[in-house]
Every structure is written in structure tokens, then in C-alpha cells.
């Protein structure tokens, strides 16, 4: 609770960091914010070639590009937050060493800047809906709570990885690899339905599995999300945030000594 009050007090700082991150990210680039689209779009093109042109992977009855892209933009948001969040403390080492401020503000700022990228990338998604003539349903509004759940889980992950990275720089090397494996362990390039039944209980332990599948249900198929999966994901995310926060706050006290 105190954490939330402190957070509200520092919203200006979070927004300042976020603005800095966004401005700095696209300064002196030719394409600027278009990079927010280029990244998920190029993955979509590659996956479309591999899984729809060379091989045919079932795509829940919608064109493969929109099937892949509708998951990829959310995954990119998650992956970018985790990659940058993990190194957030060390990337701001000169600040962390010299000045006190709640360190998690850096993590929030990174999540906000990834969220802005997601907004930009979703413009293309809207275009694809029109192009492929896929109808959009009222259930699309479910995206908002699902996204909040995803952010909660993202926060849990970066709390742990960023604190760990301060002490063990191995984490920074491991995370990009982990994320790559993680992407294939989530229903992004293939539908959830193609996961064999015997594997599914273990497969669904990954909160991102339920989250990604839910985006497709509400966006592409006009269905309600699977509340069973989402509740499980929510519980996992809450537990992780709680544990991660305790860990982060304990580790934060000595960041300046070891960074």
C-alpha cells in the first residue's frame, strides 16, 4: 500500500524517465517511431513465410499475417520491457550511485515507453483488420484488462531480473536468449490448439500462454477470454509481483554499493 502511495508521489518522475527513454530511443534515427512497427512487422513477415508459405501452420481460420501480428505486438511489448528493464539499473548507474529515488520508477518508465510502441504498432493491426476484412467484435475491449494483467506480470519479471542483474551481470546476457525460447514456448507463431493435451497442463504454467491466447480470442474471434487461464495467470502474476517487490526493495538498499 505504501508502495502505491510512493508511486503516486513519483508519477512525475516516472513520466520524466519515460519521456527521456522515448525521446532518446528515437533521436537521430531516420525512421523514428516507425521502428515500433518495423520490429513486430518484420517478425510477422518472416513467420508468415516460414509457417504459412513454406509450411502450413493452422492459424485459427484467419489469415496467418494477422494471426501472427496480433500476438507479436503484445509479445514485443513484453520482450522489450523485460530486455530493457533488466538492465535499467546498470544503464542508469551514474544516477543510482549518486542520487536516491525509488528505483522501480525506472522500470515503470520502461514499461510505459514499450506501451507507447505497442500503441504505434497497433495502428498497423487496425489496418490489417480492414485489409483482410476480419470483423472486430465488442469483445475487443477485453484487451485492456488483459494488457493490464500482462503489465503486472511484466513488472514482476523485471523486478527480479533487474535486481539480479545488478549483482550478476550474467542475467543481462541470458535474458535475450531466454526471451527467444520463451516466445516459442508461448502460442505466438502457432495456435494454442496445436499444443498436445498431455503437455498442456505444464504449458499453461507460463502466464504468457494464457495472456497471448486471450488476445486472439477477444480480437480475432469475438470470444470472451478463457477466465480459467487468466485467473491462473493473475494469481501467478500477483504472487510474483509480491515476492519480486520484496526482493527488489531489499536488494535496492545496496544497489549503489555494487553497481
Amino acid at each position: 500500500m505504501n508502495a502505491l502511495i510512493e508511486l503516486a508521489q513519483h508519477r512525475h518522475l516516472i513520466m520524466s524517465f519515460a519521456r527521456r527513454d522515448i525521446r532518446a530511443k528515437y533521436k537521430q534515427t531516420f525512421f523514428g517511431a516507425a521502428w515500433a512497427i518495423i520490429q513486430p512487422a518484420s517478425l510477422m513477415i518472416v513467420f508468415t513465410l516460414v509457417f504459412s508459405v513454406f509450411n502450413r501452420v493452422e492459424s485459427e481460420g484467419v489469415p496467418y499475417p494477422i494471426f501472427a501480428y496480433s500476438a507479436l505486438i503484445f509479445w514485443t511489448c513484453f520482450a522489450a520491457s523485460v530486455t530493457q528493464g533488466t538492465i535499467a539499473m546498470t544503464a542508469n548507474a551514474s544516477l543510482v550511485r549518486k542520487i536516491w529515488f525509488p528505483r522501480e520508477t525506472l522500470l515503470f518508465a520502461i514499461m510505459i515507453s514499450a506501451l507507447i510502441d505497442l500503441l504505434v504498432a497497433s495502428v498497423v493491426l487496425a489496418g490489417m483488420f480492414i485489409w483482410y476484412g476480419v470483423p472486430l467484435h465488442w469483445t475487443a475491449f477485453w484487451v485492456v484488462p488483459i494488457l493490464l494483467l500482462q503489465l503486472l506480470f511484466t513488472f514482476a519479471v523485471v523486478l527480479v531480473t533487474s535486481a539480479a542483474h545488478v549483482h550478476f551481470r550474467d542475467i543481462g546476457h541470458a535474458i535475450p536468449l531466454m526471451l527467444q525460447l520463451w516466445m516459442f514456448a508461448s502460442p505466438i507463431v502457432y495456435p494454442l490448439a496445436s499444443v498436445p493435451a498431455w503437455l498442456k497442463p505444464y504449458y499453461m504454467l507460463n502466464p504468457m500462454a494464457g495472456i497471448i491466447d486471450s488476445y486472439r480470442r477477444v480480437l480475432l474471434h469475438g470470444e470472451a477470454p478463457d477466465f480459467g487461464y487468466l485467473t491462473a495467470a493473475l494469481l501467478v502474476a500477483l504472487a510474483c509481483v509480491w515476492l519480486g517487490y520484496l526482493l527488489f526493495k531489499k536488494a535496492e538498499r545496496t544497489f549503489a554499493d555494487v553497481i
Partner: peptide, 25 residues
């Protein structure tokens, strides 16, 4: 703390933006 002036400055941002950023920090 005036421990290290300008520790929070970002080279790509303008002076104005840095004043706001540094003040917030």
C-alpha cells in the same frame, strides 16, 4: 544533495528537458 551536479543529465535531450528531468530526479 549536490553530490555530483548533472548526474542525471541526458546528452540527447535539450537543456530545458534536462532541467525538468533532473528536477524530477
Amino acid at each position: 544533495a549536490l553530490i555530483e551536479v548533472g548526474a542525471g543529465f541526458h546528452p540527447d535531450l535539450s537543456g530545458r528537458e534536462n532541467v525538468y528531468l533532473n528536477g524530477a530526479i
